[in-house]
Design a protein around this nucleic acid. Sequence first.
DNA 1: TGGCTTGATCTGTGATCACATTTCGCGAAT
DNA 2: ATTCGCGAAATGTGATCACAGATCAAGCCA
Lengths: 215, 215
Amino acid sequence: MTVNRPSDPAAHERLYRSLRSRIMLGELPPGKALTLRGIAREYHLSMTPARETVRRLVAEGALTLSASGRVTTPALSDDRIEELAALRALIEPELAARALPRAHFALIDRLAQMNARIADAVENHDAVGYIRCNLEFHRMLYLRAQAPAMLAMLETIWLQLGPTMRALYGRVKRNEPPRHHRMILAALRAGDEPALRLAVRADVTHGLRHLTATD
Amino acid sequence: MTVNRPSDPAAHERLYRSLRSRIMLGELPPGKALTLRGIAREYHLSMTPARETVRRLVAEGALTLSASGRVTTPALSDDRIEELAALRALIEPELAARALPRAHFALIDRLAQMNARIADAVENHDAVGYIRCNLEFHRMLYLRAQAPAMLAMLETIWLQLGPTMRALYGRVKRNEPPRHHRMILAALRAGDEPALRLAVRADVTHGLRHLTATD
DNA sequence: TGGCTTGATCTGTGATCACATTTCGCGAAT
DNA sequence: ATTCGCGAAATGTGATCACAGATCAAGCCA
């Protein structure tokens, strides 16, 4: 039954976006088991769109498929976390560098505002809000790089780290002010590419260092 | 009807592997239109596994979904090719460097053999064979890096370039001996990481330079 | 003759069903 | 009290159907 009203981009698409967002923001803990019928029931749909959505998310590494076809949220090993962190450390400085020549003042201003919202989330111990604003900060900058393929690949990595990030930021309650983010903003204002690459790399590796350490 | 004999990893899985291989090796031209019923008929299956397979390949960027849900093999723009090439140039040297300390003689020997098979494929104007052996050469090396997440990400990029690669190597009939591959082997034998990174990067960018130039 | 409408066909979408397998809990035997 | 086994419930898989939108080509009108 395809209805396709103006604001109806197919049921499985809406389901996909919703689940993807929940995973990337860390609303689901690592190792959480999901079932096709459960998802379908929750969204008042049949199994078919649920299956397509799950298949898609599995392909992106956002969900893990057991040998018997059971699907769970991934519980990453330390090695895998290190790999994903290394990939972020390779790609994000490149995206930042490509965005640098296009980063006008309005963008830097909006980045600073997002930074303030991150501080708020830290203040309120709002883990999901923290993750959301942090990702939004990075995405906002990288969008300027005009490199959709790279950004898509990077978001895939964020996706895979989603549940684990939640496990981290839910545990580490220390109020961590966005220190490296201010370094990023400073490098952007100065137009200093090497400093920007360094600051981005530091921000990425800093956040993920705790993951393998505390696990 | 789930049968699951020992050698029966689900129909949609076999379908997926088959289609994925055909795409990565460039057996399908860019812009080729596919239909769920067509795929299902070709493999003597129902639409259901075809749908799951297509969904998966779309998620990996191996296939493109039009607004109306039509699925085609991707016809990449020059910008997108440049991005994917840049990603390869970021990731592959890193993987090679990680493989270097684990690259014993037997591996280098097998790489040299694969190199010979590449030369054969060039001799016989066998585009698909060329692509297959070329990818096998790189994969064999990167497997030693013990970095499955990075390798998976890289294969996704290869996938996206598949149809376009075919379009290139089918056109450029010039006998291109695996020049950079010999540089890679030399760097491996010498244990010289900087030279290895450089050689790998050169191999990647060299092959893909022609793509944007001749398009 | 050329552009446009209209109808048939094609294609993706979602629901539902049958079935094999896996999983889990309850109860019995040691 | 622990472990083993059995049966019921749950789960993924694949097939099939109805339906709506997209596509394409033939035919009509200007």
